[in-house]
Nucleic acid binder design. Structure first.
Lengths: 175, 175
DNA sequence: AGACGAATGGTACAAACGTACCAGACTTTG
DNA sequence: CAAAGTCTGGTACGTTTGTACCATTCGTCT
C-alpha cells in the first residue's frame, strides 16, 4: 500500500465503490450520492476528490483495469486448467464485478482519454497468450477467442462448469 | 410493415429513438424526455406506450436484436470478403450504433427477461458460421473469435482497413 | 350517427440529481 | 508553535428526472 497520504485512502475507497455500485445498479445508478454512500463517506467527499462524475468514472476504470491486468499477469501457470479456473472465478464467482469491468471498458469507447486503458487490457491478454504460443498470429486469434468466450460466458452462462471451460479452451488451442 | 395500427408507428419510432440517444449520449442519457424529443413526440407518449424506463429499454433491445439478426441472416455470401465488408460497415460506418447495440446487450446480463435476446444473437452468429464450416466445434471457436474481433475493433479501432480485416479473418479460419 | 375505448399532449409534482459553498478540523511545513 | 495547506462534512440551489393526471380528440365498431 506504500505511504498513502490520508486522502488517498478515501480516494481509492470511492473508486472501488464505483465498481460495486455499477455491479448493483448498472451504469445509470452511478451518482455522486450513491458512490459516496457505498464508500461510507459524505457526499462532499465525492465532489472534493473528483472534479465531476466523468472524472470519477474515468479514474475508476483506470484503477479497475490495472487490478485486472495485475490479476492476469500474476497468474503463474498459464496452462489450460489454470486459465479455466481463472475464467470460472471471473464469470461465476465474481460475475457482477466482471460485468461492471466491461461496462467501464465500454465507456472507453466514447472517450479518447480512456483508450490507453482499453489498449492495456488487450495487450496484456495477448502478451499472456504469446508466452505460451510461439506463432504470434495464432496467439492473436487465441486471445480473440478467449475474449469472446469470456463475454459469452457472461452473457449466456455457458459453458458453466470448469470441465466444460477446459474443453472449450482445448478447442480454441487446437489452432 | 403489415397493418400497423396507428400507435405502432409511434411505438417503434420511440424504440428506434432509444438507440439513437444511446449512440449520442450513452446509457445515462436515455431518459423519457430525451427519447421523446428524439422521436419527435410529446413526453407523454413515452410514458403512454411504455410502463416505465425499464420497459422502454427492454423493448428497444428486443427490436434492435431482431434487426441485427436479420442483417446477419440476410447476408447472402458468407465468404471472407463479404464478412469483412459487414464487419467494416458495422465497426466503422456505423460505429456508434454498434456500440449502442452492445450496450443494450449488456443490459441483458442484468435482466433474465432479456436472456432470450442475447441467446438469439449468439445462436444466429454460430448458425451462420456453421453454414460454412462443417465441424461444429471449430465453428463455435470461429464464432467466438469473430465476436472477439468485432469487440476489439470497436475498442481499439484495429484492424482498420477492409484488407486487414480479411487478413484477420483468414487467420481465424485457419483452424 | 352515436358510443366507447384508444390515443394525445399539456401540465404538475415530489424526488433525486450535479455542483457549489463554507466554516471548522485536521496535517504538514518552516 | 504558528502559519499554510489540505481535508471534512453539512447545507443550499437550480435542474432534470420519473411518473401521474386529465381534458380533449381520434378511430372503430354497432
Amino acid at each position: 500500500m506504500a505511504i498513502t497520504r490520508k486522502g488517498e485512502v478515501r480516494r481509492t475507497a470511492l473508486l472501488e465503490a464505483v465498481v460495486r455500485v455499477l455491479e448493483r445498479e448498472g451504469p445509470t445508478g452511478v451518482t455522486h450520492r450513491a458512490v459516496a454512500a457505498e464508500a461510507g463517506v459524505p457526499l462532499a467527499a465525492a465532489t472534493y476528490y473528483f472534479a465531476n462524475l466523468d472524472d470519477l468514472l474515468v479514474s475508476a476504470l483506470t484503477l479497475a483495469t490495472q487490478q485486472q491486468v495485475a490479476l492476469i499477469a500474476g497468474l503463474g501457470a498459464w496452462d489450460i486448467p489454470g486459465v479455466a479456473r481463472l475464467l470460472f472465478d471471473v464469470t461465476h464467482g465474481n460475475r457482477a464485478a466482471a460485468i461492471a469491468q466491461y461496462e467501464l471498458l465500454f465507456l472507453a469507447m466514447r472517450r479518447d482519454s480512456l483508450r490507453p486503458a482499453a489498449d492495456l487490457w488487450y495487450r496484456t491478454l495477448e502478451d499472456a497468450v504469446n508466452q505460451r504460443v510461439s506463432d504470434p498470429r495464432a496467439a492473436r486469434v487465441i486471445a480473440l477467442a478467449i475474449d469472446g468466450l469470456l463475454l459469452r460466458m457472461l452473457w449466456t452462462g455457458e459453458p458453466s462448469t470448469q470441465e466444460s471451460i477446459e474443453a472449450s479452451l482445448r478447442d480454441i488451442l487446437r489452432a
